[in-house]
Design a protein around this nucleic acid. Structure first.
Lengths: 191, 191, 191, 191
DNA sequence: GATGAATGAGCGTTCATTCAT
DNA sequence: TATGAATGAACGCTCATTCAT
């Protein structure tokens, strides 16, 4: 009861983040306009500034939203390491298929970090993902699920790289993604 | 004699394209300004419009420039198919290492096509690349360089996908790219 | 008991007036923002509107505050007319030295009246000051403190004019003020 | 013939400066709007930015315009020092009477410098004025036009101070100014 | 070929103010 | 009394583009 206003506030913030996310989806950062985001939500542009002191803060929140949505928590999954990895890749694949825009926006953000906007947040995201994959692979190798000549660090890197590439093609070639991920898994388990 | 002005014209156009390319490199399409491109070259913005009727035309030329620079003509290389693929991947890797911006801009363009700006040019580029890889792999398999259960279409797709991902990380994690590509080759030739 | 809220109300009003005064001191009317005044006092801008129905009302109160602070009640001083005038000028000088901003704000208000915002309040202030000076001078001349060819009206005007000029230079050239006022007194009493 | 465009350009710049000057006259810096200045001149606001890269640059030009207009070149006048000073003061008085806004804007600028915008330009203006007055007075005293116990530095300061004060009252009490200046001259030449 | 001058449309942001709670 | 949330209007400024010269 008492925190309803609070949650209403949070609600509107979320609505704005979603609207901005969708706008980026459609026009990229290149075409992102504060006015458009506001009018999509049905509020005055000035009101948006009540929630986000600057456009860049809204963008930061969109970034956080994207990172949160991405299913990269590979180690908290059930089953054997092998099953865990499979689930992880499958989840990512499904996400790419069902909401390819998420990966489009992820790439948009990625490119922005290269031009050093707020690199830190992206570095953290990638490091976390990489670390989780490495641990999963180490455990799997130790338990005999994968050949022990595999180098977890390199495999993790390769998986992430392939996923980035897949995400970039998600909107236009959903089929390709599936095939590439399947091929990756085949290689991992071969022999 | 008669075509000197013509070539001078071409020269200036190239200079403008390069300037625009560099601008995209530094600020992305998000920060690309006609005025900046013109002043970098040392001309009046109005003059730029003599060479390119609209900003979008300049961008199209930049796209063409990027596609041209990319070393994706895999089939015109010397050696056996295996050597050809190796050379192809190595060339791409070296390009990523030496001028990672090229891949940054490629991705910028790629994202724009998703939002349907001039999709066609990108489809052609990708199709050509894919086709060349498929042919190379088919020949290699036929000649026994790779196991015959490999499916050329899927492997080609996987290679391209990985390369996109690598390109995205070129500016920030050059090491990762090397490892990923090496891993890919190991998989291809294993057994 | 009953008027405690009343005085609390007055208290907060005074706090707001002081904050606005200080803001004008630092940024002029040009940079006076309701939001800033409110946040300096630690309240919500909306709350300020409970105390002052409009920004202009707050400004009016600041004007009144400035007029009140100015030591221009020349006739209520002890001593002979000559001593009274000396005390009057000395007080003004000290005020210029100790809180030059007061005169800066006075001038800001003065300029606003020229553009006819609330001219009346300023006319009253100036008339009162002028009248007091005239009376003081008349008494002094009648009592033989100053030569009788002095014209009180004109001298009063000259004093006020000089004081305005001094006030304008108070923040940047405090020394000049002292010298000018001393010179004025010397002239007044010469022969 | 060749420099006509150049002078046209300068012409428009001057027109804009004048329009801005008039706007400040009417609304002060507080109410100075780029849009208003542009529309007064009948151009698009964007065009104004072709001539002045920022609002503050336009303001700087207005300041220079005001300083130029002010008749403070006291030493280049004909006649004896006494006549020169008289002419100087008379000119200023007439300017105050005929275009009091000039002094209103001068004061506006003066207040802005107190809040340290571009203090230097004002310091230079004042120093030049002061120096000229001092030289004029020194010469006059040496030549016996004024009693030799007068201290040129202090008198110069007093004159300037009085003139600032007069300028502040120019729009509302033109009569007062005349009287104050006359009084000043009487004092200077008494005995 | 090249430019100075111009512009309509629009940008991110801020303003004083309001009002339900 | 006090505030969170909202807004219309405007602000300084920038954009891609045009066009007479």
């Amino acid at each position: 009861m008492a925190n309803l206003p609070q949650s209403q506030n949070e609600n509107r913030k979320q609505t704005l983040i979603l609207a901005a996310y969708k706008a980026i989806t459609e026009k990229g950062f290149e075409g992102l306009r504060v006015r458009d985001v506001a009018s999509t939500v049905g509020i005055n542009p000035a009101t948006l500034y009540y929630y986000f002191p600057a456009k860049e803060d809204l963008i930061d929140s969109v970034s956080a939203f994207v990172f949160d949505r991405l299913a990269v928590n590979a180690d908290e999954l059930p089953g054997t390491p092998k099953e865990q990895l499979h689930t992880h890749l499958t989840r990512l694949y499904r996400q790419m298929r069902d909401e390819p825009e998420l990966f489009t926006v992820l790439t948009e953000i990625r490119l922005r970090t290269v031009r050093s906007f707020s690199l830190q947040v992206f570095v953290e995201f990638e490091t976390a993902w990489h670390t989780k994959l490495v641990k999963l692979l180490q455990t799997g190798i130790r338990q005999g699920y994968w050949p022990n000549y595999l180098e977890p660090e390199i495999i993790a890197t390769t998986i992430i790289t392939l996923m980035y590439g897949a995400g970039l093609q998600a909107s236009t070639h959903p089929r390709r993604i599936e095939e590439s991920i399947a091929q990756l898994e085949r290689w991992l388990t071969s022999r």
